[in-house]
Design a protein around this nucleic acid. Sequence first.
DNA 1: TTAATAAAAGATAAAAAGGTCTTAAATTAT
DNA 2: ATAATTTAAGACCTTTTTATCTTTTATTAA
Lengths: 144, 144
Amino acid sequence: MFSKACEYGIRAMIYITAASKEGEKMSIKDICHAIGAPEHFTAKILQDLSRKKLVSSLKGPSGGFFMEDEQRNITLMEIVEAIDGNSLFTGCGLGLKQCSELHPCPIHNKFKSIRDSLQKMLMETTVLQLTQNLEKGLVFLKKN
Amino acid sequence: MFSKACEYGIRAMIYITAASKEGEKMSIKDICHAIGAPEHFTAKILQDLSRKKLVSSLKGPSGGFFMEDEQRNITLMEIVEAIDGNSLFTGCGLGLKQCSELHPCPIHNKFKSIRDSLQKMLMETTVLQLTQNLEKGLVFLKKN
DNA sequence: TTAATAAAAGATAAAAAGGTCTTAAATTAT
DNA sequence: ATAATTTAAGACCTTTTTATCTTTTATTAA
Ligand code: FES
Ligand code: FES
């Protein structure tokens, strides 16, 4: 469904949001250890998200990644779009050059309905919301 | 969502089912021309589906791909599983090693719900059904 | 100001996906 | 039988994705 980059990106964003609630900054090493993701690869993803202002970072000792106040309500949709683009939401399920009501593929209606539910879910879900159950220990960002 | 191989595979299966209603056989060249897919790549996919008995084929002059009676009611799910496997339906949306109710990721419930709708749709939709609107000229397997 | 720290950036590489080309095998019609 | 046709199979190539390693830049603390 999502690319590996997107999966790591979402998990990292959730972790950073949860772990930096008091303005603390998390190093890429800590983040990747916590979410079980490859360090350098995830660093690149976060650098990209940082350029796109979805996360903040500071170099040097006591530096790291953190969330600015206005970044606390970022939706999953924003992260997915930033990393994977919007082809999942605008593209044809059977790979036609474009998804179109005027030139639909055989599964257009059924596919569009599911695609729209996914998009709706991603737009309605904020990273901050997802940190709630994480703090309660009900959900996890890493296998074991 | 689906791999290119899966997209071509589904489109080819729909075309073969529609075009071979009288027991005619379609050559890989005709199929690929009709659905706008790369010939050799699609041939491999159909060979694989043929080994898995989702489509039938015969070599030689007047040979080609066709559907046996019992193959006319194949579902999209069977095709997707044959080509892409079932990781889309059993895997974790955030890439945890396994999707589990006991060790869920933060989006497990919301993701599972959408994943299940997709699976349900694919299980309920047969290739034969999709040929109806195709014959009416209401839907298309190729851009232009 | 210097040394330590941590992200940023770039080079490189391995793996997977996507696609092409050539040869082999089976079938049919002559 | 032979030649033509068409799928089957395998080798090969390209691009994208995933991942690692090294160097640079910014920041902090001593
Ligand atoms: S045209 Fe295929 S999903 Fe819309
Ligand atoms: S655990 Fe992530 S989707 Fe089920």
